[in-house]
Amino acid sequence: MLATITRRILQGLIVIIGITVITFVMLRLIPSDPSRTMAPNATEEQLMQLKEQMGIGDPIPTQFVKYVKNLMRGYMGYSYFQKADVSTVIAKALPMSSILLLFAIIIAVVFGLLLGITAAINSNTWIDRLISGFSVLFQSMPNYWVGIILIQIISVQLKLLPSTGYKGIRYSILPSIVLALPMTAVLIRNIRASMMDSINQNFVKAAKARGIPSWSSLIKYSFRNSLIPMLTLFGTQLGVLLGNCVVVEYVFGYPGIGMQILNAIVRRDYYLVQGLVALLSSFFIIVNMAIDIGYIYLDPRIRKAQGGL
């Protein structure tokens, strides 16, 4: 088991390194560079001087070696456009996005559980159908579109919540609702399915026969039962969630990781893009790795079956 875990971690490391290399090279292949976006009409000599300042004057392989050396020392580079170290920029933007993600996950889990269980308990009544209907609907709406429409309705027309930027926790509400919607929908459906599963389990039937038709015990049981599928779901949904986060931040002008990454690409802020991509993908990979290892720990059967991966 320890060997499996070690291998997993090694694989994850290889993937993160691969992503870093690809980002590094691709950024330098696309037209334009940070010296150009900083001083568009500068002469070639002035651009060269700027490039030297920014540490992008050397050939790509040399730059890469330097970058890796810096990374080893824990230094992610400097963002000339933010006038701060990449790590400082990340340290400021990360809490913003974390609030957003945290809110979204809380909303999704609370409503997912609430509605999923309600649907299962009232299976095949109109309540169930309404909930299921809404969940498919929410899953089908393009995220950015919901954002635009909600800004219009909630912020501009009803003036209930602010729509752009960040000046306090109120500014996180609307974007996190938008971010939570599709995830809530997926959760509702999965929780309902696993609840239905439990309801049909012999154990529950037996419990019922013994005259203990206690919903609370059922919920407790099925909740425990649905923990593993929910874990899997979280792993697969995480990528979607991070992607949506970028889009939602764009629509709401919300100053988190996503906004930073979009601006950084537009301005060719090489080191910032690299840092942010590495951050996002490491997060994704580490969470998935943890989930995988969690499985191995939780379920001996998987331990055996997954020997190959």
Binding site: V15, M26, P31, V247, L280
Partner: peptide, 23 residues
């Protein structure tokens, strides 16, 4: 091949899309 697959899955798609469509 599996590591390439992992890299593809771990790369934030929207970022990749923007970079490629600029390239």
């Amino acid at each position: 091949l599996m590591r390439i697959t992992d890299i593809q899955m771990g790369f934030p798609f929207i970022v990749l899309a923007i970079i490629i469509l600029t390239l």
